[in-house]
Design a protein around this nucleic acid. Sequence first.
DNA 1: GATAGAATGATTTTCGAAAATGGGTGGAGA
DNA 2: TCTCCACCCATTTTCGAAAATCATTCTATC
Lengths: 217, 217
Amino acid sequence: MEQSGGRDVVERLRSDIVSSVFEPETRLKFADMTKRYDVGIGTLREGLSQLVSEGFVTLEAGKGFRVAPVSGEELIEITEHFIELEKRAITDAIAHGDDDWESHIVSSHHRLNIIEKLSWPERIERHSEWVQRHREFHESLVAACRGKWLFKLRSLMFNQLDRYRFVTKMAPQGLGKEKFEEHRQIMLAALDRDAEKASALIEHHIRDTSERARTML
Amino acid sequence: MEQSGGRDVVERLRSDIVSSVFEPETRLKFADMTKRYDVGIGTLREGLSQLVSEGFVTLEAGKGFRVAPVSGEELIEITEHFIELEKRAITDAIAHGDDDWESHIVSSHHRLNIIEKLSWPERIERHSEWVQRHREFHESLVAACRGKWLFKLRSLMFNQLDRYRFVTKMAPQGLGKEKFEEHRQIMLAALDRDAEKASALIEHHIRDTSERARTML
DNA sequence: GATAGAATGATTTTCGAAAATGGGTGGAGA
DNA sequence: TCTCCACCCATTTTCGAAAATCATTCTATC
């Protein structure tokens, strides 16, 4: 089998930062990183550099890379930006989505469901998979929106929220069941082409999650 | 004198793309680029990679980097996003700006003025400087906005607009004088703490420029 | 004892050579 | 004539060694 190759080192890095494998403000030294991810210095540098643009990492000239800090203030700001962008995106997607769009929503929701139905220990075991599928589900909802930049910007904000969502995932279960139902409701509203309802549901879904995250920060 | 060092290779690259030194869709080969910018392959790759996140360059795995395409549709979308973000940013800046904020607006406007007052041939001669000072002026207006991400996102959109602004700059003069006055009006509204007026002026300023650019595309 | 400066070690940053990949040409077989 | 495959060249992508930079400790001098 072909080894990782090193093309998805960015994803692994982002995943590790989101999962707090590296805590905020931690220095990311090349000596350690190259061993951990089994790639060369140059490749790693390119990856880190990309994460700087995404806001996960900071770069101080001459001092190297660090994991970007987190704060309640920033969480609030990111949440508001995301909600704003997402509402516009889903409204447009609902207006212009075709059959492929609908079917992809259904399939990605199903994939998310499979993990969300698992027992608690199994679920945290496969947490990185959950992150991936959760991202894909929300992405599928707005996939049909024209507006390349609208999509880019909302994805930027969504990825940032992943960092903060993580803290709520490690908390005692109970909120899982709620979110489970919320996802279903959002899907149904989208398939029903009810933009108003889908927007409202998403707004509540996101804002509620962020609120909980903020209290746990 | 110390040679370039290679830390601002990103700015030179962006500047060359904005100025259409490399036309859209052009392949950016490392062999040529390393000679042109006098930096190594790795450094260049890191720079290109950053421009991918900013949307100036595209990267197809295995096929290398290309200058991102331009289109009237994208111009419209970028314009609307920028106006939306900029209005929020300037409103917040006007509400919270201090004396330093004001004085920096005045000084950067002055620096822009110096170039805008020049004769036509001199002005296109120093076009890259104009781009820089124009950016700094608009940036100074919103510098006091809290909201790190609001600032980031609006800057992303502003940089994209630079590409499209360029086509209008090469057109026969006449619009120069108008923009000259518009910049002054915007500055006065900001110093007067009139958020409504400043927002309206900026909206018109940007939308008008984009409209002209679109007809010339 | 305090401070500046030099020397040392750790880490980042740069760079070009080597490996991997893609595109294109030509020739053999049908 | 057309298709397929093997080869070759151009280009990208990866990688680690060498140079540059930053932080720290040690020493000499006031």
